[in-house]
Amino acid sequence: MSSYRGPAILITVDGREYEVTAHLRKAPNGLRTSWGGTLSVPISQRPAELSTLTVGRVRLGTNEGAFVRPDISDWLGSPPNVFQITIEGNGDEPF
């Protein structure tokens, strides 16, 4: 599978879990394949700690993948009524 759109669980470093909607894809990156995309929640359900989140994991079913969030101001460009962050995967993709 080269992309995933649907429900996921965002896991913080301290183990907190949040239901999110994931829009993830993998793409060629030199001789490797990288993955990344966005994780979003309705703005009314946004936990405050997600505003400054820089690393975490995303779970899709039984698979998990680690990610970094290179820009914590990325959510400022979110669609109306949505809190959206952009992530870059580390290691194997979870989809």
Results as ranks from 00 to 15, higher is better:
Phe67Ala: 03
Arg5Gln: 15
Gly65Ala: 09
Ser44Asp: 14
Ile43Ala: 15
Ala8Asn: 05
Ser40Tyr: 00
Ala8Ser: 06
Leu24Trp: 05
Asp74Thr: 14
Gly65Phe: 10
Val41Gly: 10
Leu60Tyr: 02
Asp74Arg: 11
Leu10Phe: 05
Trp75Leu: 07
Lys26Met: 15
Asn90Leu: 15
Leu53Arg: 00
Gly56Arg: 08
Pro70His: 04
Gly15Trp: 13
Glu88Tyr: 02
Val20Thr: 05
Glu19His: 09
Val13Cys: 11
Trp35Leu: 04
Leu76His: 08
Pro94Tyr: 06
Ile72Glu: 03
Gly36Tyr: 00
Gly89Val: 02
Ile43Asp: 09
Glu88Val: 11
Thr12Cys: 05
Leu10Thr: 08
Pro42Ala: 06
Gly36Arg: 00
Met1Glu: 10
Ser3Arg: 15
Glu93Lys: 05
Gln45Met: 04
Phe83His: 12
Val58Asp: 01
Ile43Glu: 07
Gly91Glu: 02
Ser73Gln: 12
Asn81Trp: 01
Lys26Val: 11
Gly77Arg: 02
Ser34Pro: 02
Leu53Ser: 02
Ser2Val: 08
Gly6Val: 07
Ile11Val: 10
Ile43Met: 14
Gly77Met: 01
Val68Asn: 12
Ser34Asp: 13
Tyr18Glu: 07
Pro7Arg: 13
Gly65Glu: 05
Thr52Asp: 06
Asp14Tyr: 09
Gln84Ser: 14
Val82Leu: 06
